[in-house]
Design a protein around this nucleic acid. Structure first.
Length: 610
RNA sequence: GCCGUUGUAGCUCAGUCGGUAGAGCGGCGCACUCGUAAUGCGCAGGUCAAGGGUUCGAGUCCCUUCAACGGCUCCA
């Protein structure tokens, strides 16, 4: 989950409780595993963690915590807390610190970093050379900047819980050894803890993987392959509606639609720079008649070719090419996550080719699209993130041209500032061909994802020799803006499932109306209504099963169908319906014609109300 | 990819000490014809993820592989 209290969290009592709980946990672990090496243990948004290296077993396998260990550690923590041991602060010089932690290699590494003034005790970069300090409680002394509660008794013993064990790389680098991390959650009081645990339960209910199965949106089939979703008919409807929306909006914004194949020869991706910079995320090639082909991980090279299909003049610019392109990326197995992280994906992609003088307007036009969409979906919990390059990645992660990096980053910054768009800046997160603005959102269980993206490409058009003739009659290389405001179908629908908790607005709902006859005698009328609705483009079905009316209503409710039309003798007589909306509200004896108008209006306006 | 956990019917799960598999929901059939969140009865449905091993005997114990889940790393 996010925490929005950014000013001096260290001053917060809750921060101190969590930080102190981490120390107490480390003490408990060291008592149980005296040979354990301790790494770092910071407070986090919902609690704390601490990383340990437990060494190897006799067979040479990495020693890990068991769930029984967690119980024992938690029990021991409560004993330490009951001891009301004071947290004692002291400053030490580097030599003292090294002596103190002589048998703790991770701490020694941290001390070396502190000494050089590069990083703090959590491995984060710092500006000023920090003082080296420790905190001690009971038998445990840790390298630490603090602050802590005054004594262990101030950690409420009934308001924390050890949650899980996980592997985590030392300093977050996959080349480093993997440590054992214990996550705990800690709160001011028992009530807050219970609320947090309940929130986790609620989040599970709106997890898109659960809803996707229940509402028959998508499935994964083992024989098809990991990360390769199958869209069920209900999912197909949502895809169709999203594409309809995109086509409409993009047409108005001056885009042209194009179409490109799912694979291409090696040469194209060598040319684009994908193979040099992006090969790790691509499916391995297939070879036919001596030629290697790759599934496309992005659509840009194809669009570049379309740009280059004929000579372009400044009069053609900006040229906006749009495609819901299907891309394939070989995400590492452990990175897959329901629909949010898959290996085949359909992107709301487009590339805008423009001159430098048109950049700001085009860029802001795209930001405007984002806002239009987010407004439509009621997405208000997001952060715009400007991702820039890092010098150390030039030539490896990034195209090697620092001058252009700095220049384009500056252009983006200026455009965002001029447009009054708030954003945070993160170095070393850019695409290989340029800086990008990502829109970050959170899944139901609190994991962060990039939903939409907007990237500037100063490199690849030149690699493809893309030019246009400018007003002076000279050739000029266009800039390219990559943008995907509706993300991919996979991530967007995964997100929307959670965002709406499965209760889609009418225009997106796979089934918009279900007609429910009260007895068999009303079947014919019900079916006639359903057909009439279908004929006007409303997705509707009549439930002619032998269930009782109550069961039919329940089934429609469970599938989150927005409108239920209950029809019996009275409705047949009046050519009317008894409308029950998904939220439980009812309008009885509504003339069918009036209902038809109501639905059509609601769908046409893509309303978020029922 | 790495660390940990888990794989039993379409779904959610039970299965004791190793003795050849069970429930609810769902599906199908029959009966019921009902006014705003579950009508009753019956039937079908399983290579216990896959492969190997230990054992007289494996859903259960061991190994390998695959997949999912919680994290780390990485991303739309």
């Amino acid at each position: 989950m996010m925490s929005n209290h950014n000013q001096a969290p260290e001053q917060d009592q809750l921060y101190r409780i969590r930080h102190s709980a981490a120390h107490v946990m480390a003490q408990a672990v060291l008592e149980i595993y005296p040979e354990a090496k301790i790494a770092i243990g910071p407070p986090i948004d919902t609690g704390f963690y601490y990383d340990f290296d437990l060494g190897k077993t006799e067979e040479g396998k990495v020693r890990t915590f068991s769930s029984e260990d967690l119980e024992q550690i938690e029990k021991r923590m409560r004993q330490i807390i009951a001891g009301k041991h004071p947290f004692v602060f002291r400053e030490v010089d580097a030599a003292e610190a090294r002596a103190l932690f002589s048998d703790q290699p991770y701490k020694l590494e941290l001390i070396a970093g502190l000494e050089k003034g590069e990083v703090d005790e959590y491995g984060n970069e710092v500006k000023d050379k920090p003082a080296i300090s420790t905190y001690r409680q009971d038998t445990f002394e840790d390298l630490c900047r603090g602050p802590h509660v005054e004594h262990t008794g101030q950690i409420p013993p009934d308001s924390f819980k050890l949650m899980s064990v996980a592997g985590a790389y030392w300093r977050g680098d996959e080349h480093n050894p993997m440590l054992q991390r214990i996550y705990g959650t800690a709160w001011r009081n028992k009530k807050d803890l219970n609320e947090h645990l309940q929130l986790l339960e609620e989040a599970k209910k709106r997890d898109h993987r659960k809803l996707g199965r229940e509402l028959e949106i998508f499935i994964f089939e083992e024989e098809v392959g990991p990360g390769l979703p199958l869209w069920l008919p209900n999912g197909g409807v949502i895809i169709q509606e999203l594409e309809r929306l995109a086509v409409e909006v993009e047409q108005q914004a001056g885009y042209q639609r194009v179409k490109s194949p799912h694979l291409a020869k090696e040469d194209l991706f060598l040319h684009s720079g994908h193979l040099p910079y992006y090969a790790e995320s691509m499916y391995p090639p297939m070879e036919l008649e001596g030629v290697r082909y790759y599934m496309k991980p992005m659509n840009c090279p194809f669009h570049h070719k379309i740009f280059g299909a004929k000579p372009r003049s400044y009069r053609d610019l900006p040229l906006r090419l749009a495609e819901y392109g299907t891309c394939y990326r070989y995400e590492k197995s452990g990175e897959l996550f329901g629909l949010m992280r898959v290996r085949s994906m359909q992107m709301n992609d487009a590339h805008i080719y423009c001159g430098e003088d048109q950049f700001e307007q085009e860029f802001m036009g795209v930001i405007g699209l984002y806002r239009q969409y987010f407004n439509l979906f009621g997405i208000d919990r997001y952060v715009m993130r400007l991702s820039t390059h890092a010098q150390k990645g030039l030539g490896k992660k990034y195209v090697d041209n620092q001058r252009l990096w700095l220049k384009t980053e500056d252009m983006v910054r200026r455009a965002m500032d001029n447009g009054g768009v708030p954003y945070v800046e993160v170095p070393d997160e850019a695409a290989f061909y340029g800086p990008k603005i990502d829109v970050q959102i959170w899944s139901a269980i609190g994991r962060e994802f990039t939903l939409a993206t907007n990237q500037v490409d100063f490199a690849v058009p030149a690699r493809f020799d893309l030019v246009f003739t400018n007003r002076e009659g000279k050739e000029e290389t266009p800039l390219c803006i990559h943008r995907a405001p509706l993300s991919t179908h996979e991530r967007m629908i995964g997100f929307l499932l959670e965002h709406y908790a499965g209760a889609f607005p009418v225009w997106l709902a796979p089934e918009q109306v279900r007609v429910i006859p009260i007895t068999m005698e009303h079947n014919e009328y019900a079916e006639r209504l359903a057909l009439e609705l279908q004929a006007t483009g409303v997705r509707s079905d009549a439930d002619l099963s032998s269930e009782r009316m109550n069961a039919k209503i329940r089934n429609a409710q469970l599938m989150k169908v927005p409108y239920m039309l209950v029809v019996g003798d009275q409705e047949v007589a009046n050519h009317a319906v008894a409308l029950r909306k998904r939220d439980g509200s009812r309008i009885n004896d509504l003339p069918f014609g009036a209902f038809l108008e109501l639905v059509k209006q609601n769908i046409a306006s893509r309303s978020s109300d029922l």
